[in-house]
């Protein structure tokens, strides 16, 4: 069972208080984009075995969407951060590097 902390209201709760919203930092493609880009945006996912960036919503709380960095092989949560960003903040990257040396940020498609 995951324990997450909402970066907006500061409340920590277990996962039933939140709703998972899938991979974060997707680059959006819309009208005018190529078929391949649009397909990739809609369906292709990193689905990594390891560090994963994802969207969550504090449904039974303040209702805000936020981002979390989490490990899919240990369920360890490295940290949560604002959704108003296209890349995790340095503090989150540092927290991940401390636990997973050699890890690098990938620019998600």
């Amino acid at each position: 069972m995951l324990i997450l902390t909402c970066p907006y209201c500061g409340v920590s709760g277990e996962e039933t208080e939140f709703h998972a919203g899938g991979e974060a930092h997707l680059k959006r493609f819309g009208p005018g984009s190529s078929d391949a880009d649009f397909e990739s945006y809609l369906f292709h996912r990193e689905n990594p075995k390891g560090v994963h960036f994802e969207r969550w919503r504090h449904v039974s709380g303040c209702g805000k969407w936020f981002h979390a960095a989490r490990c899919t092989t240990t369920l360890e949560v490295f940290g949560t951060y604002t959704a108003q960003t296209s890349e995790p903040p340095q503090s989150i990257k540092d927290a991940i590097t401390a636990k997973r040396p050699g890890w690098t940020w990938r620019d998600f498609a």
């Binding site: 069972m1 996962e15 039933t16 998972a20 991979e23 689905n47």
Partner: peptide, 14 residues
């Protein structure tokens, strides 16, 4: 199923 990506072969109790 659970709602989040997972490779642990463990699920959430709820």
């Amino acid at each position: 199923t659970d709602g989040f990506n997972n490779y642990t072969q463990r699920g959430s109790f709820h």
